[in-house]
Simulated assay, not measured.
Amino acid sequence: MVTETSSSESLAVAERVRELMSRHGIGKRQQTAELCRILDLSFSQGHRKLRGNSPWTLAQIRRVADAFDEPALQLFDAKNADSDDTEGTAHDAVFKLGSVEIPCMAWVGAALDAGSRPDFIAQKVNNHWLVTKHEGVLLQAAFDVHKIEIQPRRADMEKPVIAVVDDDQASADNLHDYLERTGFTAIAFYHLDAFLEALQTQVFDAVVIDWLFGAHTSAGAIRAVRESDNPDAPVFVLTGELTTGKASESEISQVIRDYNVACFEKPARLAILVADLSKRLLRT
């Protein structure tokens, strides 16, 4: 059973999803955010998926179609579409094995007779489908289960992607490693030009950036983030030069007002920074 798309199929599905959203009045710049809302993805993951760079599961395709009240078949490649009614109807469900509960997609068929002895059964519990292994005698209404789809979690693809931009390589690497240990994917950049180049082809869920890079500030790079595909990404400015006078307090204050950024003095207390980062990502 095919449970997710190949790279070529991902491109085709992504194109169909973009067309579907356009038909429903979702503008190009809003489509990634809308997909993230529907599938509960980070912005970077939604961005990759909408451009066909990340595989689509059958469950994800169905959720998108359901969100716009359209048939899922139009988003599938014909060879992967489940058009056989004898296989039942796909539903989001929970697969319960002992004390373990696993989110799944279950193809639920007809109601079972009292004497039936299937391998698995589906039951509606509090308006949600619960799939269990059938043991003993049916005591309440249950339905046949034709197949169960369980998708492995791809943790790295689901983690928010954070850009760390600092010309002090030791500081950048230290923050990079801390973010990786606390549940994020981090990418370190040691030069403004390298970060600006990456911003042309990649989106970030958040940016942590030093203020001074030699004789230059990061104001232009922060403006570029606000003009990127993810303009609402949380931005944190780090500086250790306010007390020395090398960093201008008025310039940093202006950037905070103009671009809605947070500012932390170096050396940053990483636990506090990450807590603030997590809170802001949950709001976006």
Rank of each mutant, 00 (worst) to 15 (best):
P267D: 02
S253W: 05
D66V: 13
V203T: 15
F236N: 04
I148M: 03
D276V: 11
T182S: 12
V207G: 03
M105Q: 15
E9R: 09
L192D: 04
S228V: 10
K279C: 10
A163D: 13
H134N: 13
R257L: 12
L112I: 05
V137P: 00
S83N: 13
A262T: 11
G52N: 03
N260M: 10
T3D: 09
L270G: 01
H47P: 00
S116C: 06
V137L: 03
A224I: 07
I61H: 02
E15H: 13
G46L: 07
A194H: 00
T284L: 10
E87C: 11
P55I: 06
F76R: 02
E265K: 12
L192A: 09
V164C: 02
K147H: 06
A262Y: 14
G98R: 10
H24L: 05
L138M: 01
V17Y: 07
P152K: 04
W107I: 03
V164I: 06
L97G: 00
E9G: 12
L242Y: 05
P231W: 07
G183Y: 06
E4R: 14
L50W: 03
R223V: 13
F236M: 10
R18P: 00
T182F: 05
A93V: 09
E15G: 08
L281I: 13
D144A: 15
L242P: 02
R269P: 05
H176Q: 08
F76G: 02
T132Y: 03
G220N: 07
I162H: 02
Q169T: 07
T244C: 11
S253F: 07
K147F: 08
V235F: 06
K266F: 11
P71H: 11
F143R: 14
K266N: 09
A219K: 06
F43A: 05
H24M: 00
K266S: 09
A215Y: 13
M21C: 06
F195M: 01
G46Q: 03
L138Q: 07
S54Q: 11
D156Y: 13
H24N: 11
R63L: 08
G115R: 09
I252G: 07
S218Q: 08
L273V: 04
R23Q: 10
P231R: 05
A215D: 14
L179S: 04
I121W: 07
Q31D: 02
D84V: 11
Y178P: 05
F76V: 05
M21H: 12
S83P: 05
D210M: 03
L277F: 02
D77M: 12
V137I: 12
I256F: 00
R269I: 14
F95Y: 15
T86P: 01
D92C: 00
D193A: 09
V2I: 15
T32G: 04
P267R: 04
R63S: 08
V108Y: 14
A188Y: 04
W129S: 02
R117T: 15
E9V: 14
S8L: 11
F120M: 14
L75W: 06
V261D: 00
V100M: 15
V100C: 10
N174M: 13
W211N: 01
I187H: 10
V131P: 02
S6R: 11
F76W: 05
T3Y: 12
H24Q: 04
V208D: 08
A114T: 13
A170H: 14
L139E: 12
A262G: 06
S44K: 11
S250Y: 00
Q31L: 01
I102N: 00
L212D: 09
A188C: 08
D173G: 02
A59Y: 08
V131F: 07
E265D: 14
T217G: 03
S54T: 11
R29C: 09
Y259Q: 01
